[in-house]
Design a protein around this nucleic acid. Structure first.
Length: 271
DNA sequence: ACTGGATCCTGATCGC
DNA sequence: TGCGATCAGGATCCAG
């Protein structure tokens, strides 16, 4: 479910509840997520640690302690909640971390595509080793995209969704960014001009930034929300708008499968 | 080295 | 109302 803006929003939302807290208890469910939860090492190394920061890399949420980092990925259906540990765990709650404040952090994920990992200090998770640039990194610019695009024959939509190129662009914001940049999603990456790459880069940044800003406004009551915490509705211009009029030119929005994912575009605005 | 397809799961929705 | 088919916002793995 969550794309980068949602993950960033959740990160900011849980941070004040976690920083400075000590891990008083861990409850780890029996089911494996994308990978098994490293129960033994978490009980040994994360239990009783103090959390001193919460950050994000790509769509991973990183909870920093002295001995290492708890790394959380929400997959397609994962959510995090701050709750009273007295409340019973719900179906599909796979992980709970009780804090010294009396709150608990709970990870809920029906589809179990998410992940909970442990990264000891001075180690690099394999999941992180191949990641491309953050979209807000200064090095992520038109030249960077243009250079990489030369080597790729895939559709530009798949290109910008490739984590080795740039992280955090999921299926929704890929469609939205390409609409903003007026680029057809099926255009082959290597045929992009430098100008298109510049445009695409700034569109991606702008779309994600706007989504984060809109998520920020819903942050206030983070701990009091239910499972929908952290999600927000952004005005999407093409995604899920098949056969609805383009907001620029009124042409009907088309949908197509590109790389096995549904894609939406305006056949008039996006050449 | 790059590419497309299969794959891990559950739940919501839709047509019959 | 019930039932099967289809689809879902992610990311990895593998054969070619």
């Amino acid at each position: 479910m969550p794309e980068l803006p949602e993950v960033e929003t959740i990160c900011r939302g849980i941070k004040p509840y976690l920083v400075g807290q000590t891990v008083k208890a861990l409850t780890i469910g029996p089911k494996k997520l994308r990978w098994p939860i490293p129960r033994a090492v978490l009980k040994k190394d994360f239990h009783r640690q103090t959390i001193h920061n919460v950050s994000r890399r790509a769509k991973y949420i990183i909870i920093h302690s002295d001995r290492g980092q708890l790394v959380i990925h929400l997959g397609m259906s994962g959510t995090l909640r701050i709750e009273n540990p007295e409340m019973p765990l719900r179906k599909h709650d796979h992980f709970e971390c009780v804090l010294s404040s009396g709150n608990s952090l709970r990870f809920h994920d029906p589809r179990r595509f998410g992940a909970i990992l442990w990264a000891p200090n001075q180690s690099l998770l394999p999941q992180f080793s191949q990641l491309g640039l953050e979209p807000f990194d200064r090095a992520f610019n038109g030249h960077y995209l243009f250079t990489l695009a030369q080597r790729h024959k895939i559709a530009v939509k798949n290109f910008i969704m490739d984590n080795k190129i740039v992280v955090g662009v999921g299926n929704i914001y890929a469609s939205e960014s390409l609409f903003a940049a007026k680029i057809h999603p099926a255009q082959k990456a290597y045929t992009l001009s430098l100008a298109q790459c510049h445009q695409l880069c700034s569109s991606i940044r702008e779309i994600l930034q706007r989504a984060i800003a809109s998520g920020g406004t819903t942050l206030k009551d983070f701990a009091h929300h239910d499972g929908k915490t952290g999600y927000f509705k952004v005005k999407l211009k093409v995604y899920d708008r098949h056969n609805q009029p383009c907001m620029n030119c009124r042409t009907l929005i088309q949908s197509a499968r590109i790389g096995q994912r549904s894609s939406y575009y305006c056949p008039t605005c996006q050449i």
